[in-house]
Design a protein around this nucleic acid. Structure first.
Lengths: 203, 203
DNA sequence: GTCTATAGAAGGATAGAC
DNA sequence: GTCTATCCTTCTATAGAC
């Protein structure tokens, strides 16, 4: 593959990422992607054959990014509390830069659940899970958490981090009504969520 | 308006609600709505003129239902803790019956934020807010909550309740990997989230 | 009010020249 | 590899008969 090929393919991929993130699979138009990439529709099909394949490629990368972004936290040698603080800090910083990612992923996996199953299989999530479980097995006694409600805890942490971004239009509108500001709200979110979670699990 | 008119209009509205909930605005097809209502496409336009107006009607009702479902909690004469427990119980029961509502609303408001602004204006959210604030003003001293981070608390409660439903395909897939079951997880959700929240705000 | 038929436009995809 | 031209299907929306 020549250099120029890669450039065009990348331009298409980037343009497609932008358009799919903004409009979703159903709302996205091949014409708009072509325009944004500075090429014509035929070339999209030359590289990716169909809209569906192009979408698959974009979605797989984005979903992987989302998960990969979290794995460094698992590897750190930190206490559970430190890990929780680090997670909220890093994750919210990431979402501030990519605010449309979560609603995009959540919407598309609800429209087509098969997509996320493939990715979770390829990531070997079970292994990640076992590692985390093992890392903090001893520590759990110190907290008000049992082995079996770890999923409740993990999803709660994810919820506290992600929800402010997926519900931005509602939160923003309500805050506006009471004279508050969404950006201030988001800037305080990491600390609040970390304190909230740690208080919740302490004995 | 005759009885038969109302029947047809209702049939259309119900069919449209089903299809829009399942496919979203962009993915929905007028033909599918007509088929589900047992009539033809022309009649859809006779009653609602355009797809956009039909969607607006459906969306407005659903979004109002979602908010209205919450207001009874505000009126109850309960302590903050009791109210939190009641909220999770009722809200999660509601979402179990209507699991597609939250992802639908969240997706559509992100694609078109103006829609939710209109509804929040019409509901007089500011007034609801002031009432809740007033109701528990004295109680706040007993908790680790200040006047100014009430929005953080409210959105956290909403997050803990809603996220398990919008992320169902991910949660379900991961739970499957570790030999757990999504329905069990959801059945335990209300109690876990209530305990979690109350522990988090206690001094 | 309800139907059939169809207009009119847009979208995904391909053929074929260069 | 890239373009123009175009096919074919699908979709929203309307016209007009009953």
């Amino acid at each position: 593959m020549k250099l120029k090929d890669k450039q065009t393919e990348d331009k298409i991929f980037e343009a497609a990422t932008e358009v799919f993130l903004e409009k979703g699979m159903d709302g996205a138009r091949m014409q708009e992607i072509a325009d944004k990439a500075g090429i014509n529709k035929a070339l999209l099909h030359y590289y990716y054959r169909t809209k569906d394949r192009l979408f698959d490629a974009v979605f797989a990368l984005i979903a992987n990014q989302m998960f990969k972004k979290l794995t460094p936290v698992f590897d750190e040698k930190l206490t559970l509390e430190e890990k929780i603080r680090l997670f909220f800090k890093e994750h919210i910083a990431f979402l501030k830069k990519n605010p449309r990612l979560p609603i995009f992923i959540l919407n598309e996996i609800n429209r087509n659940p098969e997509r996320i199953k493939r990715i979770i299989n390829s990531l070997n999530v079970k292994n990640m899970w076992l590692i985390v479980e093992k890392q903090h097995k001893d520590e759990l006694e110190k907290y008000n958490i049992t082995q079996e409600n770890i999923p409740q805890l993990i999803t709660s942490i994810a919820a506290l981090s992600i929800f402010p971004f997926v519900a931005k239009p509602i939160i923003s509108a309500i805050l506006g009504e009471i004279g508050a500001d969404y950006n201030d709200y988001i800037n305080q979110r990491g600390d609040f969520a970390a304190d909230f979670t740690i208080r919740a699990i302490r004995k």
